[in-house]
Computed example of a mutant assay.
Amino acid sequence: MRKLKKHLKQWALATEGWSLPQVRGAFDISQIAQSEEAKENYQNATFYKERWIKEDGLEQKLIVTFSFKYQNYQRCIRSRQIERACKLLESNPSSLKKHRQTDCKRFISRTNVTTEGEIAKNEFYTIDQEIIANEEAYDGFYAVCTNLEEDAPAITKINHKRWEIEECFRLLKSDFRARPVYLSRDDRIKAHFTTCFLALTIYRYLEKRVKENFTSTEIISQLRTMNFYCVPGEGYVPTYTRTDFTDALHETFGFRTDYEIVGTKQMKKILSLQKKQ
């Protein structure tokens, strides 16, 4: 998207003129974004627009897609990176001089002048809100040029799976801690990645069951905090905070653990029920 020429970029980022596969009419994504209910209804939809372009003598079809789910995914990743950047500012500013294009350090700006414009002896580091705003403008969008004859919805469907695959690798490396691998024997390495893959499979199943209404960060972080305090002879007292995710989890799988206390027999019944699903 960022490499498109100015007139193409304006066309691609325009909020009107978007289509959905097998749906008549055009959509304005800015109007959908104004309503939380509408955004939820179109959470898993991939909007698209297309046009033919001729650049450097090569004629191609330019297809641009937009997804609210992809937008949330990108903003979730950026939020984590900004959080890491803030921690770097507090702990080790001297390590901020060099960074990669996708490094969290890109959000940190360095200046050698004071607010009055005078040259300062010390360097000042701050979070660059302009860089954040520039990146946010492209959230949810993706552009692809192709000379394939297939219609745009078919190409869009394939492209939609691309970032989901990327997310799988990111989940494995971060949340499921697949790397680094402190193993040397082949059987143990295979066992490690088999465990990670099974965890990813279970996560994807859970994500589908709660209708993909929550980000990976929300699901994993809240599952990790769903702890209980065992009261001998009484049962289990939930120590977690009730959220939209825990409500969706209970409603989907037909049990509740957010009562004041869950009896021992009831907890065994819940565990037995989930094994059968």
Rank of each mutant, 00 (worst) to 15 (best):
R75Y: 12
L271Q: 12
Q74C: 04
F47S: 00
N147Q: 14
S216N: 14
G25L: 10
K9R: 15
R256P: 00
Q22W: 06
T257V: 15
Y48Q: 00
Q101E: 15
D258C: 09
V210F: 04
S19D: 13
E149W: 12
L148W: 08
T243S: 15
G140T: 11
Q60L: 02
Y240W: 08
Y138H: 14
E16I: 01
K9I: 01
E135K: 10
R179E: 10
G233N: 07
N41I: 01
A26Y: 09
L171G: 06
I82T: 05
R78Y: 02
F169R: 02
Q31Y: 05
T126N: 11
I220E: 07
F255W: 05
F169I: 06
T194W: 14
G254D: 03
Q266E: 10
R209P: 00
R51I: 04
R185A: 11
Y70W: 11
L249T: 04
T15M: 10
G17H: 11
P232N: 08
E260F: 07
K276M: 12
I53N: 10
F253T: 00
N72Q: 12
I158V: 12
E16P: 01
L273T: 08
K69H: 04
Y240K: 09
I219Y: 13
Y182F: 13
K121A: 09
F47I: 06
T225F: 09
K98G: 00
Y236A: 04
N72M: 07
L271D: 00
S216V: 07
L89R: 02
T146I: 04
N44R: 13
K211F: 02
D244E: 10
V144L: 11
L249F: 04
E260K: 15
G235E: 06
T126C: 04
Y236Q: 04
E234T: 02
Y125E: 06
S221F: 01
G263R: 04
I158E: 15
T111N: 15
A152K: 10
Q34R: 15
Y182T: 06
R204T: 08
E59V: 11
D247A: 07
